[in-house]
Amino acid sequence: MASAIYRLIYRSVFAIPSEEAEAERELRAILDASRRNNAASGLTGALLHNGPHVVQVLEGPLAAIEAVFDRIAADVRHTAVELLQFAAVAQPSFPAWSMAYIPQGSVEELALLEPMRNPGGPEAIDAALATLSGALRRDD
């Protein structure tokens, strides 16, 4: 039996405000670390940056997800971490990305958040993520 794939989605407030350039650099550092660590521990996912918010999707084995979330949840570069989904899933939505980056303005955050907010169920979330990864594929 292959071990189950879990998905974790959370939203938080990015805490590097003042300077654009500095925020950019900080985000780069986070993405670099994410790609390096996630590839090593078999995780995939996407990071969406929109306004003050960050929405991150992480997919992979349970232990790896919990380990990376321990680090993310101890990171003071963001605040108000809000869990949106944590569940076993049949298929990862971003199997090709150790951490896809969806920069400011490219996707409506609401497109992702709306199905999670409203009782659309897991299917609605899956559908939203599929749209998102489809968009990524076209971009590449």
């Binding site: 997800i65 919990e66 949840a73 101890a74 003071v76 108000a80 971490v81």
Partner: peptide, 8 residues
């Protein structure tokens, strides 16, 4: 803030 974040 840190301790109000969920624990997995």
């Amino acid at each position: 803030d840190l301790l109000s974040r969920p624990f997995l």
